[in-house]
Design a protein around this nucleic acid. Structure first.
Lengths: 136, 136
DNA sequence: CTTGACCCTCTAGCGACTAGAGGGTGCATA
DNA sequence: TATGCACCCTCTAGTCGCTAGAGGGTCAAG
């Protein structure tokens, strides 16, 4: 039940890099585990649970600060989960904006690329479009 | 014709921050200008032209390295602009991938948010979905 | 002559890791 | 017992593209 894990095992169990785990400990996202006689970190099931949570939230694009907040909320189990909903929705909105921005960008780039006649740089419409109105 | 510009004028003329211009000089993206007696940078029309090019390319999402490459290509005016086309298309592809990734993410988040019944954290499906299979 | 807007250099910080140097630990095998 | 190798440790610096701040100098107007 209470299996001990080395950092390497925890890393492969969660799909995280060893360095990233040490980084999470350093910034206080993952609690520091006990140490073995040889000064090796020894993780418990709880660490595995927390790190899995972190990984999934990060994979969904939540920032470290958002993850910290979500974990704080997850620990107050009797409270309303409205705050959780708020964070998720904020994140969803940010992604919506990013998609819109990138789509607009893609449109501009497409127009640029379509205009390229693949001749010399001197009459390349891409370079021209990037440069100032000066025809040089 | 050959108007001299202070860094502040160049900044407002191109919509760039003063610090950013100094940064571009530091990394060798914008050539170092002459200095006045009081050690002020004095920019010429050519600098304005180059910085405008940089700004537009950056606004289109090209990386600094890509901008460097594009500027190098723009200077070899007699050569084929195929290389320019390649860079633009690589960038376009990267954006396409980003949009696809974000769209998939948005779908996952939507499913998560829809499942929230707005009760207590203890039975919040968002927290549950983030956590491990352990029902705790 | 003083005020205030501008300029200078240098250094450190952001987010979220990643990479590397330089060294210690632990286990299996010869 | 020795040796090899995979793994672990700490500490520091690098990535990208800026941004912010400290601590100071310059210049033109009033």
């Amino acid at each position: 039940m209470s299996e001990k894990l080395t950092i390497g095992k925890l890393a492969s169990a969660t799909g995280t890099k060893v360095e990233t785990i040490r980084y999470y400990e350093q910034i206080g996202l993952l609690p520091a585990p006990a140490r073995s006689t040889g000064n090796y970190r020894t993780y418990e099931g709880e660490h595995l649970r927390r790190l899995s949570f972190i990984r999934r939230a990060r994979d969904l694009g939540f920032s470290i600060d958002q993850v910290r907040e979500l974990m704080g909320l997850a620990d107050r189990r009797e409270q309303s989960c409205m705050a959780v909903d708020v964070i998720a929705n904020q994140h969803r909105d940010a992604i919506t904006r990013k998609i819109a921005d990138l789509t607009a960008l893609a449109g501009e780039l497409d127009a640029l690329i379509d205009s390229c006649s693949r001749n010399t740089v001197a009459d390349c419409r891409i370079i021209e479009a990037l440069g100032p109105s000066d025809p040089c």
